[in-house]
C-alpha cells in the first residue's frame, strides 16, 4: 500500500482541509466541535428565540426584542459538536482485484475522508470488514490522529469472503452513536448487498455507499476457453470468452451497478461509484463534491 507521503502531498492536504463531509441530518455529538448539533447551546450561530422562564440566564435575554415586543425572549444559539463518522472498508478477497487494487483505492479514499473528518474535529472510526467486523480504529479526533489512521490503513490486507450483513449486525448491536456511515466496497456480496445496507439504514445512520469498481470487473480482458475461479469462494466455472459473452457480462455488470445505485436512491442513501483507474484526488475533489458528499 502507498505511504502517506505518496498519498497526500501538502497542497492536497490543504485542499482537503477546506472540505466538509456533508451530513443530511444533525446528530448528537459528544464534544464541542464544528458540527451543528441537535441541541441548542452556547454556540455562535443564532438558532431561535423562546420565552423567558424564571431561572434563565439574564445574559441571553434579547433586549432589543423586548423593546419592540415588550416580551422577554431568550436568544438561543446552536450547539456545535463533533460528528461520529464510521468508515467501513470492505477487505474481502474480491477487493484485491484491479490495478491499483480496489482495497488500496478504498484505503486512499478512506484516508482522505478521515483527514477531512479529523480536520473538522469529527470522531472518525475505521472499521474493516469481510464476513465479520474486523479490528476497528475507533473514535479518532483531531488532525494529529491522521498518522494512526495511515498506519492502520497500511496494515489492512484483503482476505476472506464478503458478508456485510453479518459484519454490520455486530456493529449495530454495539449501540454506537448515530452518525455518518460510509461503506467503501465493491458490493460483490454473494448474499446480496442490500442486507448489509438495510441493517445500517434501520439503525438510522446517515449512509454513504462508495462503490469501488475496477476495469477488471467492468470490462474483463478474457479470451478463449477459460475456467473462472472465484477468489473468495474458490468455486469454478468454465466459459468460452467470446465477444458476445463479454458483452453480455458487461451488460449484467451495468445492471448490477444500477441495482446498487437504484437501491441507494430508493432509500435516499448517498451513492458514489468510482473507478480505480480514476485518480482518487479527482474523486475526492470533484466526484464527491458533485454528489454532494463533500462541500
Amino acid at each position: 500500500m502507498a505511504t502517506e507521503d505518496e498519498l497526500f502531498d501538502g497542497k492536497f492536504l490543504k485542499k482537503l482541509e477546506y472540505l466538509h463531509i456533508v451530513s443530511k441530518r444533525a446528530f448528537a455529538g459528544q464534544f464541542r466541535a464544528e458540527r451543528r448539533a441537535k441541541k441548542r447551546g452556547s454556540g455562535l450561530e443564532f438558532a431561535d428565540h423562546r420565552a423567558y422562564s424564571p431561572g434563565d440566564d439574564f445574559r441571553r435575554v434579547d433586549w432589543r426584542a423586548y423593546q419592540r415586543l415588550e416580551k422577554l425572549l431568550l436568544r438561543l444559539f446552536e450547539e456545535e459538536q463533533d460528528l461520529p463518522i464510521y468508515l467501513f472498508i470492505d477487505c474481502s478477497r474480491s477487493m484485491a482485484d484491479g490495478r491499483p487494487t480496489k482495497l488500496a483505492y478504498a484505503c486512499q479514499v478512506a484516508a482522505a475522508l478521515c483527514y477531512i473528518g479529523l480536520a473538522h474535529l469529527d470522531r472518525v472510526t475505521l472499521a474493516p470488514y469481510t464476513d465479520h467486523l474486523g479490528r476497528e480504529l475507533s473514535s479518532q479526533r483531531g488532525k494529529g490522529q491522521i498518522f494512526k489512521v495511515f498506519k492502520f490503513l497500511g496494515q489492512l490486507a484483503s482476505g476472506g469472503t464478503t458478508d456485510a450483513k453479518a459484519a454490520f449486525e455486530k456493529f449495530c448491536r454495539s449501540k454506537r452513536p448515530r452518525g455518518i456511515t460510509v461503506v467503501i466496497s465493491d458490493f460483490l456480496d454473494p448474499r446480496g448487498f442490500e442486507a448489509g445496507l438495510n441493517l445500517l439504514r434501520f439503525s438510522h445512520h446517515d449512509i454513504f455507499a462508495i462503490h469501488v469498481v475496477s476495469q477488471a470487473d467492468s470490462e474483463p480482458e478474457l479470451r478463449g476457453d477459460l475456467q473462472l475461479v472465484d477468489v473468495e469462494t474458490g468455486s469454478t466455472h468454465d466459459i468460452a470468452a467470446t465477444p458476445s459473452l463479454l458483452s453480455a457480462y458487461q451488460h449484467v455488470y451495468e445492471e448490477f451497478c444500477s441495482e446498487v445505485e437504484g437501491f441507494c436512491a430508493k432509500y435516499q442513501l448517498g451513492y458514489v461509484r468510482t473507478q480505480t483507474e480514476v485518480p482518487f484526488e479527482d474523486v475526492i475533489l470533484q466526484v464527491f463534491r458533485q454528489n454532494r458528499f463533500l462541500t
Binding site: R93, M95, L226, L228, S235, I239, V252
Partner: peptide, 21 residues
C-alpha cells in the same frame, strides 16, 4: 483439455450471465 484458470473477483455476475445464456 483443462481450460486455463483465471481468478475473478466474484462469479456472482458471471453466473447470472451464464444462466441467462
Amino acid at each position: 483439455l483443462r481450460h486455463p484458470r483465471v481468478a475473478v473477483a466474484s462469479l456472482l455476475l458471471w453466473e447470472r450471465v451464464l444462466q441467462d445464456r
